[in-house]
Amino acid sequence: MEALILTIIATSIPLLLAATGELIAEKSGILNLGVEGMMLSGAVGALGAVLWLENPYYGIIAGALSGVLMASIFSVFTINFMTNQVATGLGLTIFATGLTGLAGAPLVGKTIPSLPKIEIFLLADIPIIGSILFKQDFVAYLSIAIIIFISFFLKYSKSGIILRAVGDDHQSAHSVGYPVKKIRWYASCFGGMCAGIGGAYIPLVLTPHWSEGMTAGRGWIALALVVFASWIPWRIIVGALIFGGITIAQLVGQARGWPIPSQLLSMMPYLATIIALTMISGRLSKNNSVVPSSLGKPFFGSQ
């Protein structure tokens, strides 16, 4: 049971990180559909770095940098060249799939050491809870720290309020003197960093070797999680755990030989995403205030 919970947590961390990053980007008005691509880049970057430097911690840094690099490409085009965000995000995922396929080809068949668990002094000795919550790896702690940080950041810090203002009404934010494009660049790159680390977590903890398209749609599920969480950070934890649970449930089902065809079990995370989106969206359309109003709209500067 304990092992099962640990697997569920591990499965949900890439989703959690990527969704948190995307939430910040979306709060600033940036809709980046390239999450899947940024995660793939993070994964291949981490694998390359760990194989080269032989230390899994460099994998986290490399993953973050790869994610930021991808987000920068997205930002140049959408923020500076004012391209359509939906199409550019799709392009980013397609681009990254090709790039990582090419960069990952020499890595095929090589295995990396996984990220070590860190026991927190005394707390780790608490029965059951201790080994679940306080014997995690660095990224797991980091992702919780990020969630707590951005919850406070968005609610109480001045920068957080400015970020939300930019996402809600970029014209007004601009006219009172906030640098809309610069703020969006930061938010977008933060999103890239989180998605990159989330992607890096996949080879660092879940499957320690490269395969083409190894993120398997997690980036898209992360996008759905942001909607599911109605742009409220802590709800992403709940959502990510539910999806982690569903993913693991279908794997357990396959292993235990439940009398349901394995393909139908594998559909569960995707079907659950559609169902979750449907339940939340109906409610959201009645209460439109949570969706950033300038989301996905290009900002043309002063005119």
Binding site: I73, F77, T83, A87, T88, L90, G91, L92, T93, I94, F95, A96, T97, G98, L99, G101, L102, G104, A105, E212, G213
Partner: peptide, 14 residues
């Protein structure tokens, strides 16, 4: 690897 076409497609779209 033939997924590399994605590379060209992505850049082209940008």
């Amino acid at each position: 690897p033939k997924v590399v076409t994605g590379l060209f497609e992505g850049i082209l779209l940008f």
